[in-house]
Design a protein around this nucleic acid. Structure first.
Length: 195
DNA sequence: AAAAGGATCACCT
DNA sequence: GGTGATCCTTTTT
């Protein structure tokens, strides 16, 4: 069942943990993609130097301050789109970066989108996911409580003992925040982006 | 180890 | 309104 607003409208870290084992579903016209979330990162509010929200409100990051349950999709390194989910009450910044999926539905189309790559190369990284699904800036600000893209609970429960907390990837510029254990993944999954 | 690539932001004029 | 450094990555050497 589709996650509702109140799931997202909580603390970023708990939302991140609970997104593990849920399914990201994207349905553009005549297509259907689905994948099980196996790795995420929490990006907190204005104090978190790794978070875009740390430089207070800008045109780019304002969606992070808005209503929970919306998509925050941004472009980086001149090449890649990254998909995040907005958390916290309206007015409080927060987002969860979806870093890795286990491909489940629409995999043939994903292979095409990924230039013929297959297996664990399909969605084992945040920019690989968006390429595989065909997600780009048009999805930015989309409401995950509507019909284009959403996250659903299929009844799987990930035991706390199967969840690993680790430092986030690619944020070594973030001073004292760079080593905080705000990255979470399912232990043993072959689809995570980095061990 | 490093290139690929463009939007964004901080900081100038 | 222009400039330059930077970036929540991926792929290839």
């Amino acid at each position: 069942m589709k996650l509702k607003r109140d799931f997202y409208e909580r603390g970023t870290e708990i939302v991140a943990r609970e997104l593990l084992g849920k399914y990201l579903v994207f349905e553009p016209p005549h297509k259907h993609f689905g994948g099980k979330i196996v790795e995420v990162e929490a990006y907190l509010g204005e104090n978190d130097l790794a978070s875009h929200a740390s430089k207070s409100r800008t045109k780019r990051n304002e969606v992070m301050f808005g209503q929970a349950g919306h998509a925050y999709v941004y472009f980086t390194y001149g090449l890649f789109w990254l998909f995040n989910v907005v958390t916290e009450k309206e007015g409080v910044a927060g987002a969860v970066l979806i870093r890795a999926l286990e491909p489940v539905e629409g995999t043939e189309e994903m292979v095409v989108n990924r230039g013929g790559r297959n297996g664990h190369f399909l969605t084992s990284g945040p920019a690989k996911i968006t390429e595989a699904f065909g997600i780009d800036g048009k999805i930015n600000r989309a409401d995950l409580c509507s019909g284009l893209i959403w996250i659903e609970d299929r009844g799987e429960v990930i035991k706390p003992s199967k969840i690993v907390a680790a430092k986030r990837i690619g944020v070594d510029y973030a001073g004292e925040w760079k080593d905080k254990k705000l990255r979470f993944y399912i232990k043993g999954s072959e689809f995570i982006s980095k061990p």
